[in-house]
Computed example of a mutant assay.
Amino acid sequence: MKPHLRRNMLILALGIGFLVLTALFGTFISNYEDAPHEASAQIQKQQAGPYEITLQVNPNPPSINTPATIIIQVVRSGTQQLLTNAHVSISGEMPEMNMSPNQAEAKLQKNGTYTTNFQFSMSGSWLLQVRIEAPDHQLRTQASR
């Protein structure tokens, strides 16, 4: 075999080997990001003005590949009556990262809860801020995920 042909075959073999290793590494990284991370409390409650807000993230911990469902229930503390005439939105950010917050609007469900799909773009600790605009109040509360 001629020397230049042997050199070209070696370069081709090394190139194919590099591509295979790169693909294996990419698969490893992709699977690592999907690995379960530490979950927060399944249900979190927070007092905000005259209301008690209950927040639940499903699945917990959420995946970065599909949006999580966030369920919010707002109850007037004194009467335990569900607040069903509010505009509820969520803003979420990672305090350690310098990124714009993710935002979502929650829709009222028949059972008196508000739900939304929320995309957690990275794994780690998130700070969720729930904004409630009711006819008689405008409130914000925070929960950690």
Score class of each variant (00 low, 15 high):
Tyr32His: 13
Tyr32Asp: 12
Ala35His: 10
Ala35Pro: 01
Pro36Ile: 08
Pro36Cys: 03
His37Ala: 06
His37Asp: 07
Ser40Pro: 01
Gln42Ser: 11
Ile43Val: 15
Ile43Ala: 15
Lys45Trp: 07
Gln46Arg: 14
Gln46Met: 13
Ala48Leu: 07
Ala48Trp: 06
Glu52Val: 14
Ile53Leu: 15
Leu55Asp: 11
Gln56Asn: 12
Gln56His: 08
Asn58Pro: 00
Asn58Cys: 00
Pro59Asp: 12
Pro61His: 08
Pro62Cys: 10
Ile64Phe: 01
Ile64Trp: 01
Thr66Phe: 14
Pro67Thr: 06
Pro67Val: 09
Pro67Asp: 11
Ala68Thr: 08
Thr69Met: 13
Ile70Gln: 06
Ile70Pro: 02
Gln73Thr: 10
Val74Ile: 15
Ser77Cys: 00
Gly78Tyr: 00
Thr79Ala: 05
Gln80Leu: 08
Gln81Pro: 00
Gln81Cys: 00
Leu82Met: 09
Leu82His: 10
Leu83Glu: 15
Leu83Ser: 12
Thr84Gly: 02
His87Ile: 10
Val88Phe: 05
Ser89His: 02
Ser89Phe: 03
Ser89Thr: 15
Ile90Asp: 02
Ser91Leu: 05
Gly92His: 03
Gly92Ile: 01
Glu93Asp: 04
Glu93Ala: 10
Glu93Trp: 04
Glu93Gly: 03
Met94His: 07
Glu96Cys: 01
Asn98Gly: 01
Asn98Asp: 15
Asn98Ile: 07
Met99Gln: 11
Met99Val: 03
Met99Asn: 09
Ser100Tyr: 02
Ser100Trp: 02
Ser100Thr: 11
Pro101Lys: 09
Asn102Pro: 00
Asn102Gln: 14
Asn102Ala: 10
Asn102Ile: 14
Lys107Asp: 11
Lys107Arg: 11
Lys107Ala: 12
Gln109Phe: 01
Lys110Ala: 14
Asn111Glu: 11
Asn111Phe: 05
Asn111Ile: 05
Thr113Ile: 02
Thr113Trp: 06
Thr113Gln: 14
Tyr114Asp: 13
Thr115Arg: 15
Thr116Glu: 03
Asn117Tyr: 08
Asn117Lys: 15
Asn117Phe: 06
Phe118Asp: 05
Gln119Trp: 07
